[in-house]
Amino acid sequence: MRSVCEDMNTTPLPRIRVEDVSLGYGSSLVQQGVSFDIPSGEIFAIVGDSGAGKSTLLKAMVGLIPAASGRVLFDGVSLDERMRDGAPPFGILFQNGALWSSMTLLENIMAPMELQDHATPAARPALARFKLALVGLADDGHRYPASLSGGMRKRAALARALALDQSVLFLDEPSAGLDPLTSRRLDALVLSLRDGLGITVVLVTHELASLYSIADRMIFLDGDAHRPVALGRPAELAHSATSEKVREFLAVRAPQVTAA
């Protein structure tokens, strides 16, 4: 584990710190000894084989499920302490969008603002329309989630994740079920949000194209070893990771077309 853990004493206070987290369901342990820091403004990817616990780690980071051990700190403060102030320090895009089906898109974005008393009531519609415009759905605010395509739902969910203007964004498999073109557009949007708003992004992904094009760093969770086996820049790990599984995973790209 030493190889994939950072020396936490020498780095400045990170935006997110995951300290020796273990995850499990019942008596079975999914991952153990997960530790990493994410500095502000970084796009950090959680990668691994199927069933390795990527989404579980993400859910533990946002407090949806308890970690078996260890802790997660946002700006040096635990999530429970941060939540006492009211609004959480992050927005989250769930794998299937998780938009509230009984509300229009505009209502989906305004509801968190209303419930967390974010912005003045008069400003909320304009703010919500702006978030929808950011994801290219400016004219669809009156529509219900059921009437949208998968890609539109993902983008609308991303707009809702930005509703409270949090500085951290969690994305659970944002490209899952999307065609490559829509997936690339979503990647470009995430990059723009990071570059334009300085948002820190944590994403779970299987998509190598997304990984190479937007992720600054990644952690690889090994489902067989039940622990992380690589932490670093994707392009570097593709060549220098000590784990053969990581190199193999990162090496799978589209085949090269050669002239006949």
């Binding site: 946002v62 769930f94 794998q95 299937n96 967390q116």
Partner: peptide, 17 residues
């Protein structure tokens, strides 16, 4: 129950609601 399956309740929880 449908909201639970669609992660809509998780979305509420992560918004501090």
């Amino acid at each position: 129950a449908t909201m639970q399956g669609n992660e809509e309740i998780d979305a509420l929880t992560t918004l501090g609601i």
